[in-house]
Amino acid sequence: MNKQRKPIIILYADDDPEDRMLVKDALEESRLANELHFVEDGEELMDYLHRRGKYSELKNTLYPGLILLDLNMPKKDGREALEEIKEDPILRRIPIVVLTTSKAEEDIYRSYDLGVSGFIVKPVTFESLTEAIKILGKYWFEIVELPF
């Protein structure tokens, strides 16, 4: 069903190095062949998506097929970045799944209001994280059609 055989990129925005490590491990564990790219705050995320600054060489490459977004990040947090992405006529098409420690109702409502495709509270155990990544991969890269 995939239009091109190129692996779909997952972009993971999180300032926490251990969480980035765990997600990377979980992705390997779940045998997903996706490329995983990291950005460490909202500003880097916007630079990455707009292909500017240190990400300018990404011009003319494929947008990520899925963004995993942490809400609490330095400089520009996930909420602000989310708002910006959803205001952009092209970027808004990229599905975003929030991956955060926040369980606050307010964050959940606000995120969906801004058009996220999912809201996941960071699983406590590695096992459940792997399980979540596996299901995410199956859903986004096997079942649904992606815009890019």
Partner: peptide, 20 residues
Amino acid sequence: SHDLQEPLRKIQAFGERLRA
């Protein structure tokens, strides 16, 4: 209690990794 959960989650996750 919110912030305490962060490092705790790591202790659990890496403990699990260590055992695995």
